[in-house]
Design a protein around this nucleic acid. Structure first.
Lengths: 235, 235
DNA sequence: TCCCGTTTTCAACAGATGTTGAAAAATAGA
DNA sequence: TCTATTTTTCAACATCTGTTGAAAACGGGA
């Protein structure tokens, strides 16, 4: 009566259904009727619990955000602790960023896979997507950037941020689980095998950051000459 | 009478408008009325020229695909030629893949930037997006993978494909130009400065591929022991 | 048992959506 | 000019969309 009792909890049924639908078809590709039918509830019930459609989407996005953030923060602190008094390796930091999300028993739950695809969708959506990401993930990202700065002494700030952009892009595409790599590799890689993706990403991304630092022109007054050829502007 | 005369060409006006709208809001986030209004034409005209909505989307996607493919194929061949008789460096291959898209005078045209955002949208869309990408970009991608194989002797196939997945993800997020990196870096990086993104990506991605080869367990009978801790499945 | 707050259902709304057919206008060939 | 073809407009269609208000069903405390 006072606190909302978790009874048979149709709330989570709605969230699960919305999660699956939104992650597969995007915000505008999904109707409340589809969600309600999938959740096995009346059409009016999502609105009763969550208000308008956009608030339902936000509720889905937020539900698991703090959980995964906590995992990653713990992993980062553990990596720093394990390496003391020196800063951890770049690879250890990347691993702390990726492993809590991409490996572990929670991946048996299809709901988590749907959620990851949803995060990928949001991260690639211009405008409102960026706001959602910034609000819920930026604080932790800054912690990782701070750790990377310590592990990559002398690295230029611009290189660091562009490096993170590469990192984030690689992770985002992995989270999307589009099946592209399955087709391209002829089945050698499976995009829903997130643990496999993680293990490979760790090496690739760590190597990328270190190469980006090596290639940095540090504080040279003049940048190296660009080699480009002119080309027509359209067709 | 025989050939469709390109007159005042409302066709391209429609394609341009659709390109801008689809890239900003996705397929389902856009109405034909919005596109028609933006193009300054009647609502029925898109349907007259392109058929149903999905075919209009495909027409937008295809229009510039062959152009950019031709650019990249030329750049790859030039890189191979320039390095003969040895294979080109990994960095040269990555550069041939990125520079034709991300640098050059065609980026003055906002239409091209919109198109790139559209490609990012398609590449992150599960299901039908993968089919579009595969149909129009896979042949060229396989050429680049072949070149990478020659430049990375001894690299495991799985590592190569997962490396390409990282590469593709980094590029895709850059193409999306979501503005995330602007906010995160406090203005140090600008996501619509694709030439800057390109120059940094070249080093990062080339380093990633080389690190992925170094880290490869080659053909060891038993993979190295995984280090993970158990964790709860949800909350 | 009754009562009251919560949850669920039902039916309907006002507006938007993709698509179409027929009419009108423009165009080009004779 | 007349004529045949293409292009453009107009109006409407059937359907679907998010949202809502009122009624009904439920559930636990007296």
């Amino acid at each position: 009566m006072k606190t909302p009792p978790p009874k048979a909890d149709r709330r989570t049924a709605i969230l699960d259904a919305a999660e699956a639908e939104f992650s597969a078809h995007g915000f505008d590709g999904v109707t409340l009727r589809t969600i309600a039918k999938r959740a096995g509830v009346d059409l009016a019930l999502p609105n009763y619990y969550f208000g308008p459609k956009k608030q339902l989407f936000d509720a889905v996005f937020i539900r698991r955000a703090e959980i995964v953030n906590q995992w990653r923060e713990d992993a980062l602190k553990a990596a720093i602790e394990a390496a003391k008094p020196r800063p951890p390796t770049v690879e250890a930091i990347i691993r702390a960023y990726l492993e809590p999300m991409l490996t572990g028993p929670h991946l048996e739950d299809q709901g988590w896979k749907n959620y990851y695809a949803l995060v990928a969708y949001v991260n690639n959506s211009p405008g409102w997507g960026g706001r959602l990401m910034a609000e819920h993930f930026d604080p932790l990202i800054r912690q990782f950037l701070d750790a990377l700065r310590l592990s990559l002494p002398g690295m230029d700030e611009k290189d660091l941020f562009w490096g993170y952009q590469c990192f984030s892009g690689a992770l985002t595409l992995a989270l999307a689980q589009t099946g592209r790599i399955d087709h391209l590799s002829g089945g050698v890689c499976q995009s829903d095998d997130l643990a496999d993706a993680c293990e490979h990403m760790v090496h690739f991304i760590a190597g990328g950051f270190e190469a980006a630092r090596r290639a940095a022109p540090a504080a040279l007054p003049a940048p190296p000459a660009r080699r480009r050829s002119a080309r027509g502007t359209a067709a």
